[in-house]
């Protein structure tokens, strides 16, 4: 694609697929490995068509053996390849948690700097599709606890496409969390889309009254809430965190200093979650900028229920974001 071409209309799913395709085309060391990535076309159809294009060596179906194929990804990365390991959902990644934490995240340090692990792991995350308590959780904040990992949460087509190339160029393990509900999101991918920075948050919507810090599937919800709030004369600034480890403190604190009120919207659980970490950093670094205590809107602390009305009630929604912002603003003075 050249810069003079018009942007392409596509879904987030297409953008992720194009990112993978581009990586496979650009570097013979890159290969994709995971459950059902090949003949099935990917559980969420992300890799559909790639097997025919790149063959079984590079679009590698694995047995249902998360620990072994994630560990194999680590070994292959040590051996000079650039594997993209797909884990069907982040709930399943717990079967590979030992490999992710005890090996991928620890190896460089444990070896005194000798063995870095240039591995990328992609996984689907999040609720909202009535998949109940073993397919719907948001564990990205949890992984962000672990030194040695980088944790990315692409929430736009550009990031869905471009974060992969940046992650593959990184010398260390990078986890990419793709929220399941975003796959059908439609948008435009600029013709010159390419690698994006994977170290900073981005202001997606400017505002002066309140800052909404969010990521993943809560980003489009927050943007929609911000648009409705604007009609009421409340101007929310929406910051897309994009990267949960390392957190971009500078962008967060800059927005806090501008609006003095903060709402964190996170599909993860509240207790011990990434929202707690961000809130703590704000009080450490920008306490005197705050007009109101930092507020958090997180998922209810339940294993995700199946019934639609219960699941929807468990997740942050446009309405609950609006209500939380109104409360923050109303209680001012």
């Amino acid at each position: 694609m050249s810069t003079t071409d018009p942007p392409k209309k596509m879904t987030y799913r297409d953008a992720v697929r194009e990112g993978i395709r581009s990586a496979l085309q650009n570097d013979p060391r890159v290969f994709l490995m995971g459950e059902d990535v090949g003949h099935y076309g990917g559980c969420f159809a992300v890799s559909r068509g790639l097997l025919a294009e790149f063959g079984e060596e590079r679009i590698r179906d694995t047995p249902l053996a998360e620990s072994a194929f994630v560990g194999a990804g680590i070994g292959a990365a040590l051996g000079g390849m650039r594997p993209i390991v797909e884990i069907m959902t982040c709930n399943f990644s717990l079967l590979a948690l030992d490999q992710i934490m005890n090996t991928a995240a620890s190896l460089l340090h444990m070896s005194g700097g000798q063995f870095n692990v240039p591995l990328v792991i992609r996984m689907a995350t999040g609720g909202g599709k009535q998949l109940a308590a073993q397919h719907s959780h948001s564990l990205e904040g949890w992984y962000a606890h672990i030194p040695g990992l980088k944790v990315l949460t692409p929430a736009t087509l550009e990031d869905g496409y471009g974060m992969l190339a940046s992650a593959l160029a990184d010398p260390d393990p990078v986890l990419i969390f793709e929220n399941q509900t975003l796959y059908i999101m439609e948008g435009e991918l600029p013709a010159n889309a390419g690698p994006v920075d994977i170290s900073s948050a981005k202001v997606r919507c400017e505002g002066k009254d309140v800052t909404i810090l969010t990521y993943g599937a809560s980003l489009p919800k927050s943007l929609e809430a911000a648009a409705k709030l604007a009609e009421q004369g409340v101007h929310a600034e929406v910051v897309d965190l994009r990267v949960l480890r390392p957190l971009d403190d500078a962008t967060i604190m800059r927005s806090v200093a501008k609006t003095h009120r903060v709402l964190i919207v996170d599909e993860g659980w509240r207790s011990g979650g990434i929202s707690a970490e961000i809130s703590a950093r704000i009080q450490e670094k920008a306490f005197y900028e705050l007009d109101r205590p930092v507020q958090r809107l997180c998922s209810a602390e339940v294993p995700m229920p199946y019934a639609k009305h219960l699941e929807q009630a468990a997740l942050p929604q446009v309405e609950s974001i609006i209500a939380a912002v109104q409360n923050l603003v109303r209680s001012h003075g």
Binding site: F69, G71, A72, G75, M81, N102, L107, M110, F115
Partner: peptide
């Protein structure tokens, strides 16, 4: 390549090295 102190943890790594 180590020195792995998780019992069984080295086997998947070996698979990957061989795959590479």
């Amino acid at each position: 390549c180590g020195g792995n102190a998780i019992v069984g943890g080295g086997l998947p790594l070996a698979i990957g090295l061989a795959l590479a």
